[in-house]
Protein backbone atom coordinates (compact mmCIF):
# COMPACT_ATOMS: atom_id res chain seq x y z
CA UNK A 1 0.00 0.00 0.00
CA UNK A 2 1.15 3.50 -0.77
CA UNK A 3 2.45 5.14 2.42
CA UNK A 4 0.75 8.54 2.10
CA UNK A 5 2.58 11.03 4.36
CA UNK A 6 -0.71 12.57 5.50
CA UNK A 7 -2.05 9.22 6.69
CA UNK A 8 1.21 8.30 8.43
CA UNK A 9 1.26 11.69 10.16
CA UNK A 10 -2.40 11.28 11.11
CA UNK A 11 -2.18 7.82 12.61
CA UNK A 12 1.09 8.58 14.43
CA UNK A 13 0.17 11.96 15.89
CA UNK A 14 -3.48 11.38 16.65
CA UNK A 15 -2.68 7.97 18.14
CA UNK A 16 -0.33 9.43 20.72
CA UNK A 17 -2.58 12.50 21.15
CA UNK A 18 -5.62 10.39 22.03
CA UNK A 19 -3.35 8.27 24.23
CA UNK A 20 -2.30 11.38 26.17
CA UNK A 21 -5.91 12.56 26.44
CA UNK A 22 -6.89 9.15 27.82
CA UNK A 23 -4.29 9.44 30.60
CA UNK A 24 -5.40 13.02 31.35
CA UNK A 25 -8.98 11.75 31.59
CA UNK A 26 -7.87 9.23 34.21
CA UNK A 27 -6.30 12.08 36.14
CA UNK A 28 -2.75 10.88 35.54
CA UNK A 29 -1.15 13.32 36.10
CA UNK A 30 -3.80 15.13 38.17
CA UNK A 31 -3.07 18.51 36.63
CA UNK A 32 -5.02 21.75 37.04
CA UNK A 33 -4.54 25.37 36.04
CA UNK A 34 -1.61 26.37 33.83
CA UNK A 35 -0.02 22.91 33.78
CA UNK A 36 -3.32 21.40 32.73
CA UNK A 37 -3.56 24.03 30.01
CA UNK A 38 -0.16 23.01 28.64
CA UNK A 39 -0.98 19.27 28.74
CA UNK A 40 -4.39 19.66 27.13
CA UNK A 41 -3.04 21.99 24.44
CA UNK A 42 -0.39 19.46 23.43
CA UNK A 43 -2.92 16.64 23.43
CA UNK A 44 -5.40 18.59 21.32
CA UNK A 45 -2.74 19.74 18.88
CA UNK A 46 -1.69 16.13 18.34
CA UNK A 47 -5.14 14.53 18.26
CA UNK A 48 -6.99 17.21 16.31
CA UNK A 49 -3.93 18.06 14.20
CA UNK A 50 -3.76 14.44 13.14
CA UNK A 51 -7.44 14.46 12.22
CA UNK A 52 -6.95 17.59 10.11
CA UNK A 53 -3.92 16.03 8.40
CA UNK A 54 -6.05 13.02 7.50
CA UNK A 55 -8.42 15.21 5.48
CA UNK A 56 -5.52 16.28 3.23
CA UNK A 57 -5.68 13.05 1.28
CA UNK A 58 -9.41 13.35 0.58
CA UNK A 59 -10.55 14.19 -2.92
CA UNK A 60 -13.41 16.32 -1.57
CA UNK A 61 -12.70 17.48 2.00
CA UNK A 62 -15.60 19.95 1.79
CA UNK A 63 -18.02 17.01 1.97
CA UNK A 64 -16.32 15.53 5.05
CA UNK A 65 -19.43 15.99 7.21
CA UNK A 66 -21.16 13.28 5.17
CA UNK A 67 -18.69 10.84 6.71
CA UNK A 68 -20.79 10.91 9.88
CA UNK A 69 -23.77 9.27 8.21
CA UNK A 70 -22.84 5.60 7.77
CA UNK A 71 -21.82 4.51 11.27
CA UNK A 72 -24.00 1.39 10.91
CA UNK A 73 -21.51 -0.29 8.59
CA UNK A 74 -18.43 1.90 8.19
CA UNK A 75 -15.50 1.99 10.60
CA UNK A 76 -14.37 5.27 9.07
CA UNK A 77 -17.71 6.78 9.97
CA UNK A 78 -17.52 5.30 13.50
CA UNK A 79 -14.07 6.79 13.87
CA UNK A 80 -15.46 10.20 12.96
CA UNK A 81 -18.15 9.91 15.67
CA UNK A 82 -15.81 8.52 18.30
CA UNK A 83 -13.19 11.20 17.72
CA UNK A 84 -15.64 14.09 17.91
CA UNK A 85 -17.27 12.62 21.03
CA UNK A 86 -13.86 12.08 22.67
CA UNK A 87 -12.67 15.58 21.85
CA UNK A 88 -15.90 17.17 23.12
CA UNK A 89 -16.02 15.26 26.41
CA UNK A 90 -12.33 15.84 27.06
CA UNK A 91 -12.80 19.54 26.27
CA UNK A 92 -15.27 19.76 29.15
CA UNK A 93 -12.80 17.90 31.41
CA UNK A 94 -9.99 20.17 30.26
CA UNK A 95 -11.99 23.35 30.80
CA UNK A 96 -12.88 22.14 34.30
CA UNK A 97 -9.25 21.43 35.17
CA UNK A 98 -7.81 24.58 33.60
CA UNK A 99 -10.34 27.24 34.55
CA UNK A 100 -12.17 25.90 37.60
CA UNK A 101 -9.51 23.75 39.24
CA UNK A 102 -11.96 20.87 39.34
CA UNK A 103 -11.89 17.37 37.98
CA UNK A 104 -15.01 15.40 37.27
CA UNK A 105 -13.72 11.81 37.56
CA UNK A 106 -16.72 10.10 35.95
CA UNK A 107 -16.58 12.39 32.94
CA UNK A 108 -12.83 11.86 32.71
CA UNK A 109 -13.27 8.08 32.60
CA UNK A 110 -15.90 8.38 29.88
CA UNK A 111 -13.54 10.66 27.97
CA UNK A 112 -10.67 8.17 28.31
CA UNK A 113 -12.86 5.35 27.12
CA UNK A 114 -13.94 7.43 24.11
CA UNK A 115 -10.29 8.22 23.31
CA UNK A 116 -9.43 4.53 23.27
CA UNK A 117 -12.59 3.83 21.25
CA UNK A 118 -11.33 6.32 18.66
CA UNK A 119 -7.96 4.58 18.38
CA UNK A 120 -9.76 1.25 18.15
CA UNK A 121 -12.01 2.53 15.34
CA UNK A 122 -8.96 3.85 13.48
CA UNK A 123 -7.26 0.48 13.74
CA UNK A 124 -10.41 -1.35 12.60
CA UNK A 125 -10.41 0.64 9.34
CA UNK A 126 -7.28 -1.33 8.49
CA UNK A 127 -7.96 -4.55 10.38
CA UNK A 128 -11.31 -5.09 8.61
CA UNK A 129 -9.74 -5.31 5.14
CA UNK A 130 -9.55 -8.92 3.99
CA UNK A 131 -7.85 -7.55 0.88
CA UNK A 132 -4.73 -6.69 2.90
CA UNK A 133 -3.92 -9.91 4.78
CA UNK A 134 -1.12 -8.26 6.75
CA UNK A 135 -3.64 -5.91 8.37
CA UNK A 136 -6.54 -8.32 8.60
CA UNK A 137 -5.99 -9.53 12.18
CA UNK A 138 -7.17 -8.69 15.72
CA UNK A 139 -3.49 -7.99 16.42
CA UNK A 140 -3.80 -4.72 14.50
CA UNK A 141 -6.16 -3.10 17.06
CA UNK A 142 -3.97 -4.52 19.83
CA UNK A 143 -0.94 -2.88 18.24
CA UNK A 144 -2.62 0.50 17.80
CA UNK A 145 -4.15 0.50 21.29
CA UNK A 146 -0.97 -0.57 23.05
CA UNK A 147 1.03 2.05 21.17
CA UNK A 148 -1.45 4.79 22.03
CA UNK A 149 -1.43 3.78 25.68
CA UNK A 150 2.37 3.57 25.83
CA UNK A 151 3.00 6.79 23.93
CA UNK A 152 0.34 8.55 25.97
CA UNK A 153 1.94 7.40 29.22
CA UNK A 154 5.30 8.67 28.01
CA UNK A 155 3.86 12.05 27.12
CA UNK A 156 1.78 12.25 30.30
CA UNK A 157 4.94 11.81 32.36
CA UNK A 158 3.97 8.42 33.79
CA UNK A 159 7.31 6.59 33.72
CA UNK A 160 6.04 3.66 35.80
CA UNK A 161 3.29 2.89 33.33
CA UNK A 162 5.45 3.75 30.32
CA UNK A 163 8.15 1.31 31.43
CA UNK A 164 5.57 -1.49 31.41
CA UNK A 165 3.59 -0.43 28.35
CA UNK A 166 6.52 0.39 26.05
CA UNK A 167 8.13 -3.07 26.23
CA UNK A 168 4.66 -4.63 26.00
CA UNK A 169 3.80 -2.75 22.82
CA UNK A 170 7.27 -3.56 21.50
CA UNK A 171 6.50 -7.25 21.87
CA UNK A 172 3.12 -6.79 20.16
CA UNK A 173 4.92 -4.98 17.36
CA UNK A 174 7.35 -7.84 16.80
CA UNK A 175 4.58 -10.46 16.93
CA UNK A 176 2.59 -8.36 14.44
CA UNK A 177 5.56 -8.26 12.07
CA UNK A 178 6.25 -11.98 12.30
CA UNK A 179 2.61 -12.88 11.67
CA UNK A 180 2.44 -10.31 8.88
CA UNK A 181 5.26 -11.89 6.95
CA UNK A 182 3.19 -15.07 6.55
CA UNK A 183 -0.19 -13.39 6.21
CA UNK A 184 -0.48 -13.27 2.42
CA UNK A 185 0.62 -16.88 2.02
CA UNK A 186 -1.81 -17.95 4.76
CA UNK A 187 -4.72 -16.04 3.24
CA UNK A 188 -5.23 -18.65 0.48
CA UNK A 189 -5.47 -15.85 -2.07
CA UNK A 190 -2.90 -16.24 -4.83
CA UNK A 191 -2.67 -15.84 -8.60
CA UNK A 192 -4.45 -19.15 -9.08
CA UNK A 193 -7.52 -18.07 -7.10
CA UNK A 194 -7.38 -14.52 -8.49
CA UNK A 195 -7.56 -15.70 -12.09
CA UNK A 196 -9.32 -19.01 -11.52
CA UNK A 197 -6.80 -20.48 -13.97
CA UNK A 198 -4.80 -22.50 -11.43
CA UNK A 199 -6.46 -25.76 -12.50
CA UNK A 200 -4.89 -25.52 -15.95
CA UNK A 201 -1.35 -24.82 -14.84
CA UNK A 202 1.04 -22.32 -13.36
CA UNK A 203 -0.17 -18.74 -13.94
CA UNK A 204 2.21 -15.95 -14.89
CA UNK A 205 1.31 -12.34 -15.66
CA UNK A 206 2.17 -11.96 -19.32
CA UNK A 207 1.02 -8.45 -20.18
CA UNK A 208 -0.38 -5.72 -17.96
CA UNK A 209 -3.51 -3.95 -19.20
CA UNK A 210 -1.69 -0.72 -20.00
CA UNK A 211 1.81 0.39 -20.83
CA UNK A 212 2.19 2.69 -17.83
CA UNK A 213 1.14 2.45 -14.19
CA UNK A 214 -2.39 3.34 -13.09
CA UNK A 215 -4.13 4.42 -9.89
CA UNK A 216 -4.38 0.86 -8.62
CA UNK A 217 -0.68 0.23 -9.02
CA UNK A 218 0.34 3.54 -7.50
CA UNK A 219 -2.03 3.18 -4.57
CA UNK A 220 -1.98 -0.53 -3.84
CA UNK A 221 0.95 -2.19 -5.55
CA UNK A 222 3.54 -0.03 -3.80
CA UNK A 223 6.77 -1.95 -3.43
CA UNK A 224 9.48 0.68 -2.97
CA UNK A 225 11.56 0.44 0.16
CA UNK A 226 10.63 -3.11 1.06
CA UNK A 227 14.23 -4.15 0.69
CA UNK A 228 15.15 -1.80 3.55
CA UNK A 229 12.34 -3.21 5.66
CA UNK A 230 14.58 -5.06 8.07
CA UNK A 231 16.78 -2.05 8.76
CA UNK A 232 13.70 0.10 9.25
CA UNK A 233 12.20 -2.41 11.63
CA UNK A 234 15.36 -2.36 13.71
CA UNK A 235 15.30 1.45 13.67
CA UNK A 236 11.62 1.52 14.66
CA UNK A 237 12.25 -0.82 17.57
CA UNK A 238 15.28 1.10 18.75
CA UNK A 239 13.79 4.59 18.49
CA UNK A 240 10.23 3.69 19.37
CA UNK A 241 10.71 1.37 22.31
CA UNK A 242 14.27 0.68 23.48
CA UNK A 243 15.69 4.20 23.59
CA UNK A 244 12.69 5.78 25.36
CA UNK A 245 12.86 3.04 28.01
CA UNK A 246 16.57 3.65 28.56
CA UNK A 247 15.99 7.39 28.80
CA UNK A 248 13.28 6.80 31.38
CA UNK A 249 15.55 4.61 33.48
CA UNK A 250 18.23 7.27 33.98
CA UNK A 251 17.43 9.95 36.59
CA UNK A 252 14.69 12.29 35.41
CA UNK A 253 15.44 15.45 33.48
CA UNK A 254 13.20 17.42 31.14
CA UNK A 255 15.75 17.13 28.34
CA UNK A 256 15.80 13.35 28.53
CA UNK A 257 12.02 13.20 28.77
CA UNK A 258 11.70 15.35 25.63
CA UNK A 259 14.28 13.16 23.91
CA UNK A 260 12.33 10.04 24.89
CA UNK A 261 9.13 11.48 23.41
CA UNK A 262 10.86 12.60 20.19
CA UNK A 263 12.58 9.27 19.78
CA UNK A 264 9.33 7.41 20.39
CA UNK A 265 7.47 9.51 17.81
CA UNK A 266 10.22 8.88 15.25
CA UNK A 267 10.10 5.15 15.91
CA UNK A 268 6.31 4.99 15.64
CA UNK A 269 6.42 6.99 12.39
CA UNK A 270 8.96 4.52 10.97
CA UNK A 271 6.77 1.62 12.06
CA UNK A 272 3.71 3.28 10.46
CA UNK A 273 5.63 3.81 7.25
CA UNK A 274 6.35 0.09 7.20
CA UNK A 275 2.73 -0.62 8.15
CA UNK A 276 1.74 0.73 4.74
CA UNK A 277 4.80 0.10 2.59
CA UNK A 278 5.02 -3.58 3.51
CA UNK A 279 1.30 -4.28 3.26
CA UNK A 280 0.44 -6.40 0.23
CA UNK A 281 -2.95 -5.79 -1.36
CA UNK A 282 -4.32 -8.84 -3.15
CA UNK A 283 -5.03 -6.78 -6.29
CA UNK A 284 -1.26 -6.87 -6.84
CA UNK A 285 -1.69 -10.52 -7.80
CA UNK A 286 -3.52 -9.48 -10.98
CA UNK A 287 -0.38 -7.55 -11.87
CA UNK A 288 1.85 -10.49 -11.05
CA UNK A 289 3.12 -8.68 -7.96
CA UNK A 290 2.38 -8.75 -4.29
Amino acid sequence: MHPAPSVIAFTTLSGIGFGLLAWLGLGLPPVTGGTAFAFFTIAYLLAAGGLVASTFHLGHPERALLAFTQWRTSWLSREAWASVAALLVMAVCGAGAVFFDTRIPALGWIGSALCMLTVWATSMIYAQLATVPRWNTPLTPVLFLSLAAAGGALLAGQPDFALVLLPLSGVVQVVWWVRGDRALADSRTDMASATGLGGTGRVRAFEPPHTSPNYLMREMVFRIGRKHALKLRALALLLGYVLPCLLLLIPFSHVFAALAVGSHLGGVAASRWLFFAEAEHVVGLYYGKS
Partner: peptide, 25 residues
Amino acid sequence: ACIGCGLCAWACPYGAREMDAAEGV
Protein backbone atom coordinates in the same frame (compact mmCIF):
# COMPACT_ATOMS: atom_id res chain seq x y z
CA ALA B 1 -21.65 12.36 -1.91
CA CYS B 2 -18.18 10.87 -2.43
CA ILE B 3 -15.40 12.49 -0.37
CA GLY B 4 -12.71 10.64 -2.30
CA CYS B 5 -11.27 8.83 0.72
CA GLY B 6 -10.38 5.82 -1.42
CA LEU B 7 -11.31 3.27 1.25
CA CYS B 8 -13.70 1.43 -1.09
CA ALA B 9 -10.89 0.90 -3.60
CA TRP B 10 -8.83 -0.63 -0.77
CA ALA B 11 -11.72 -2.90 0.16
CA CYS B 12 -12.24 -4.27 -3.37
CA PRO B 13 -10.05 -7.32 -3.99
CA TYR B 14 -10.38 -7.03 -7.76
CA GLY B 15 -9.08 -3.54 -8.45
CA ALA B 16 -12.46 -2.56 -9.87
CA ARG B 17 -12.56 0.97 -8.45
CA GLU B 18 -10.34 3.82 -9.54
CA MET B 19 -10.14 7.31 -8.11
CA ASP B 20 -10.32 9.87 -10.87
CA ALA B 21 -7.24 12.08 -10.55
CA ALA B 22 -8.94 15.16 -12.01
CA GLU B 23 -12.30 14.86 -10.28
CA GLY B 24 -11.26 13.40 -6.90
CA VAL B 25 -14.20 10.98 -6.85
